[in-house]
Structure formats: C-alpha cells, structure tokens
Simulated assay, not measured.
Amino acid sequence: MTRPRPLLALNWKMNKTPSEARAWAADLAAALTPGGAELAVLAPAIDLPVLAGELPAGVALGGQDVSRHEAGAYTGEISAEMLRDVGATCVIVGHSERREYHAETDAVVAAKARQAQAFGLVPIVCVGESLDVRERGEQVNFTLDQLRGSTEGVGENLIVAYEPVWAIGTGRTATAKDAEEMAAAIRGALAGLYTAGAQSFRILYGGSVKPDNIASICAQPNVNGALVGGASLKVADVVAMNDALK
C-alpha cells in the first residue's frame, strides 16, 4: 500500500475572529505552493462559514469538537450535521483539553466519534498520556487503553492523533523516536480492533510541532502527519512546515 501524503491538521483552538480567519486564508492562498502535505484547518465553529469560501482549493475544513447528540435542547453545542452542512469533512474528538477541562470520558469521546461518522465526518480521535504516566513508564498501556475506550463502536474511517499531554503548548516535544514508538503501538492496536489493514490508518503526532521538527517526526514509518497547535496560527509557519515535507 502506497504511503499517503502526510496530513497537517491545523488546530487553531480558541483563536481568530471571522475577519482574522478571512485574512489568514487569503495569506495562505498567496503563499502556499503545490506539493508537501495535505492540509486541514480545524477552526472555531464561528469561523467555518468564512473559511469554507476562502480556503485555497484542496485545503480541507474541520471542526474542533462535535456534540454526541444529533439535535435538540443542547444549548451551545454544534452537531455533526451542522459541521457537514458548512463544508467540514473532519472533526477533532477527545482533545486533551476537552478531556481535562470538560471531564470528557472515553465513552463520551466514542459517542462523539460515532455521531461524526453518522454524518460522514472523519473523527480525529485524540489520545495520549500525562507526564506522570510517562515517568512511570506506563505510557503505552495507558494510551492504548484510552484508544480502545475512545473507539468503542466507532467505524474504521477514523484518524488517530497521539498527543502526549506534557508536550502540548509547553515547548517540550516528544522525540521522533518517542512519536514512532507510540504510533507503532497504536497501529498494532488498530489492527486488532478493525478488519482493515494496519497501514490503512492515519496516525498523527501532536505536541509543540514546529517547522524545525516536522520533517523528522513525519519521516517515522508509522507517523502520517501532525496535529498542529500554536504553529498553525501563522501562515509563515504553516508554509514552512508544508515545504519541509516536500
């Protein structure tokens, strides 16, 4: 099976107003050159309608979260159907910030992923360990347990993002070897959970990814791209990461 182009899933988190999103998209269109990675912009829901009409051709659009409910009295939530209707093709579920600040369990994450798939969205299922878990040497078992719980009843059309919590927004980055160790373990676990071939799954690394480390991380055999946080906010950094993967 031919290895797919690396995917850069650009998670803006709670940044950029719609007017700022429009300007960012225009700057990207002016600076991006062919080749390199596939790009997906995972923006705040309020920015998605603007980006749907402004992103360069071939750049995908995605959400940062989705409700586990199809519709109804769930004030403030965004449904999978709403995301699909505005042009999103993918959505993050189970980001470590959602797990920590909103007490999302693996069961909730799995329910969100199932709801996303029901409306044709590809869930980007996030898993990863805290620093204390890694220091105990339990990172692989912890992450694979989290993966199993977060994919219960979820179809095989998914992406997994490994994000060591201790490396998110801290400037600390797992080494390429660390990323590969976990990506290989995740791929092996997915092969046991699904009938699809192990190589059919995309596995991303997330955690302080930058232009100067993206190439070494994505060169690893089991890493298929990155979930990018802070470096996704500047077009120059996005272009530099894309060029590094050509």
Rank of each mutant, 00 (worst) to 15 (best):
Q199M: 08
L121P: 00
L10T: 05
V41D: 03
A111T: 03
C126V: 12
Q117S: 00
E156P: 11
L193N: 04
Q220K: 15
D47L: 00
L245F: 14
A189P: 04
Q146F: 09
I124R: 01
G76M: 05
D65M: 01
A9I: 08
G192T: 13
M241G: 07
E77V: 02
G171E: 14
Y205K: 08
C90M: 15
A191T: 05
G36W: 11
R172D: 14
N157C: 00
E38H: 09
R114H: 02
P221E: 12
A52Y: 04
V160A: 09
L51V: 14
G155E: 04
D27L: 07
V50W: 07
T17Q: 05
E138M: 12
G63W: 12
A71L: 01
A110H: 02
S216Q: 15
V209R: 04
G153S: 02
E70R: 10
R148N: 09
L55A: 09
V239L: 09
A219C: 15
L55P: 07
T173N: 10
V122A: 01
R5Y: 12
G207Y: 07
V86I: 14
R187Y: 07
T195P: 00
V59P: 11
L10C: 05
M241N: 13
G169P: 05
K16V: 14
G76E: 05
E100T: 08
D145L: 05
L42M: 10
W24Y: 11
R148P: 04
G58Y: 13
Y205G: 08
A240H: 09
P6R: 04
N157W: 01
L42D: 06
R99N: 07
A29Q: 08
G137M: 13
D47V: 01
V223Q: 09
